[in-house]
């Protein structure tokens, strides 16, 4: 797994909780390193071990923990660069949702060796979208629920999200877009300083 993914988990634990929490998770997960480096690669099992250890240390179920990771990735000030990059996806939350098909491609444009899930978005009814997520690591549906909810807030849209796991292991997020202009959202200036 790419260091950026592992580093995001580490950042979530350090920034949302504290360094002691991270140290304990690291110990329980038996990590051979003090911390992940964003630009290196690690064995996939380490990522899984960190998630399991974090759920255990924080006494949280996997889905709600991963949902918080998703929210953190978009809304925490330390991740403002990622939030900006996501806003390039579209001028409105509607456009943004349509752009999710391109998300993995866009990410690999910047980091060619990044592990990204296969994403496919369908607009199946007037205000309903279904996002299919296929990836080796279970729980991505929850991560996307957290991240998409934070993006909806960012755009000022009102939407409901629900994650499901299909029998073949494919994870789905169903999105009901209620109001595109529910609140004013956070400002995004295209030429804003790169974070």
């Amino acid at each position: 797994m790419h260091g950026l993914v592992n580093r995001a988990l580490q950042g979530f634990l350090c920034d949302t909780y504290d360094r002691d929490t991270w140290a304990e998770v690291r110990n329980q997960a038996g990590l051979p390193v003090d911390g992940f480096e964003s630009m290196l690669h690690y064995e996939d099992r380490l990522t899984e071990q960190v998630i399991l250890a974090a759920a255990h240390v924080l006494q949280r179920d996997r889905a709600s923990l991963l949902e918080d990771v998703g929210t953190y990735l978009i809304s925490h000030p330390n991740q403002s660069a990622l939030r900006r990059l996501m806003r390039f996806g579209g001028d409105s939350f509607f456009d943004f949702l349509q752009s999710l098909d391109d998300l993995s491609g866009r990410a690999r444009l910047a980091v060619p060796d990044l592990d990204m899930p296969d994403l496919h978005i369908r607009h199946d009814r007037s205000n309903r979208f279904v996002l299919d997520i296929r990836w080796g690591l279970p729980g991505m549906g929850a991560v996307f629920v957290g991240a998409l909810r934070a993006m909806a807030d960012d755009y000022g849209a009102l939407a409901f999200f629900e994650a499901e796991v299909l029998e073949d292991g494919c994870e789905q997020v169903v999105i009901e877009l209620v109001d595109q202009a529910f609140a004013c959202g956070r400002s995004f200036s295209l030429g804003g300083r790169p974070a």
Binding site: F88, R106, L109, A195
Partner: peptide, 25 residues
């Protein structure tokens, strides 16, 4: 300028995206 100021065929927005992503990396 905003996203709306560029035609969908214009890759300027992708360049901006790439520039920011590269700066972050």
């Amino acid at each position: 300028l905003t996203l709306k100021d560029f035609a969908p065929c214009d890759q300027t927005v992708d360049l901006l995206y790439l520039r920011e992503a590269n700066a972050a990396i």
